[in-house]
Write a protein that binds this DNA or RNA. Structure first.
Length: 301
DNA sequence: ATCCAGGGGTCAC
DNA sequence: GTGACCCATGGA
C-alpha cells in the first residue's frame, strides 16, 4: 500500500482537528476512528480512498484505493494541506487570542486547531444551503440522504466511503425527489439551481479566484438565488480560506459570543464589530474557534 | 406543546 | 436601507 508523508507545522494538533470533524454529528463524508480518519474523494476523474493518521512529526497518508499515478498523489497531498490549512503560520492569531481576556483560554484548550476547509466550492455551497435555518443534526441527516442517493462511494475495509454528488448528476434531480427526502421546497430549488450553474460552468472556484477583491467574490455568490450573505461568507471561509470572511447572522457564532458575554444580545452589532476589529485578518479563525467552543459546551452538558 | 435551528427571499414602507 | 413575514421540518 502506497504511503505518503506530510510534515506537520508548528501549532497543529491532528487530534484537535479530528475531534472537531467527529464532534457530535454524523458526517457521511468521512469516517473517524481514534487517531485516524478515512475518506474518499475524486481526483482527476478517479475516485480515490485514503486514510490519515498522526505519527511523530508527520501525518501519514495511506492510499487504500486507487491513486497510482504520481500526479494524483501530489494532488492528494495538496488536498490534505488545504483541508487542514497546514501551510499557514497561525502564531499571529494566537498572539491576538492571548491578548484577549475572555478568549485567551482557547490558545491552550484548542491548541493546534486549524480552520478545516471544504475543498470543493460546489459542495460547500450545497452544504451551507442544506444547513440554512435548520439544526445541525437534521442538516447532517439531509446531507447523508443526498450523498447516499446521488453520490458515488467506495467500499474499503468494510467501510462505505461516500463522495459528494457531482452537479451533473444533481442538476437532473426533480424537486419532488428532494421533497421526498424531506428537503423543503426552497432548499430543493436552491440546490437544483446551484447544481445547474456548476454543471454549466457558469460559476466555479476559478471564477472566484479571478475576482479582484473579496467584495467582488461576495457579490458574485450572493447574486445567486438562495445564496445570501451568510452562505457566501461561509463558502469563502471554508473553500478559499478567506480569513476576513465572517458569516454574519450565524446563530452559532452569536450564541458563542453570548456564552462568552462578548455581546449584550443577538442584535449587538456594535459589540460584534468591536471584537472582530481586534482580530483583523483572522476573523474566520476567530469564528471557527468560537464554533469550536460551542462543541465544548455541548460535550460538557 | 413550544421554541429554536451554523438563513434567504419577498414585500411594504 | 430596514423590518416584518413566510418558508418547512426535526430536535430538545
Amino acid at each position: 500500500m502506497k504511503k505518503l508523508l506530510i510534515a506537520k507545522p508548528a501549532l497543529f494538533s491532528f487530534d484537535e482537528c479530528l475531534w472537531f470533524l467527529n464532534r457530535n454529528y454524523d458526517d457521511c463524508l468521512h469516517h473517524i476512528e481514534p487517531g485516524s480518519l478515512s475518506k474518499a474523494i475524486c481526483i482527476n476523474g478517479e475516485n480515490i480512498a485514503f486514510s490519515l493518521r498522526d505519527q511523530d512529526q508527520h501525518l501519514v497518508l495511506d492510499l487504500t484505493h486507487g491513486g497510482e499515478d504520481v500526479a494524483q498523489q501530489e494532488a492528494l497531498v495538496q488536498y490534505i494541506i488545504e483541508w487542514f490549512d497546514l501551510e499557514r503560520d497561525i502564531t499571529p492569531f494566537y498572539q491576538l487570542l492571548q491578548k484577549n481576556k475572555t478568549l485567551g483560554y482557547m490558545a491552550n484548550d484548542f491548541a493546534g486547531f486549524r480552520l478545516i476547509g471544504i475543498h470543493d466550492l460546489y459542495e460547500a455551497l450545497c452544504w451551507s444551503i442544506i444547513g440554512q435555518q435548520i439544526n445541525l443534526t437534521f442538516a447532517y441527516t439531509l446531507k447523508r440522504r443526498l450523498v447516499e442517493h446521488y453520490g458515488d462511494h467506495l467500499s474499503v475495509n468494510g467501510l462505505s466511503l461516500h463522495i459528494f454528488p457531482r452537479p451533473e448528476v444533481l442538476q437532473h434531480v426533480s424537486i419532488a425527489e428532494l421533497r421526498a427526502l424531506q428537503f423543503s421546497e426552497r432548499k430543493a430549488e436552491y440546490l437544483l439551481l446551484v447544481s445547474q450553474l456548476f454543471a454549466a460552468g457558469t460559476i466555479s472556484k476559478q471564477h472566484l479566484l479571478q475576482c479582484a477583491s473579496y467584495e467582488e467574490q461576495v457579490a458574485l455568490l450572493t447574486a445567486i438565488r438562495g445564496i445570501g450573505i451568510w452562505t457566501a461568507n461561509y463558502a469563502l471561509m471554508k473553500t478559499l480560506k478567506q480569513l476576513q470572511a465572517i458569516p454574519y447572522g450565524d446563530v452559532g457564532l452569536l450564541n458563542a459570543l453570548l456564552n462568552h458575554e462578548l455581546i449584550k444580545d443577538k442584535k449587538d452589532n456594535a459589540g460584534i464589530d468591536k471584537l472582530f476589529k481586534r482580530f483583523k485578518g483572522w476573523e474566520s479563525y476567530l469564528v471557527f474557534y468560537l464554533w469550536r467552543s460551542l462543541s465544548v459546551v455541548k460535550r460538557d452538558l
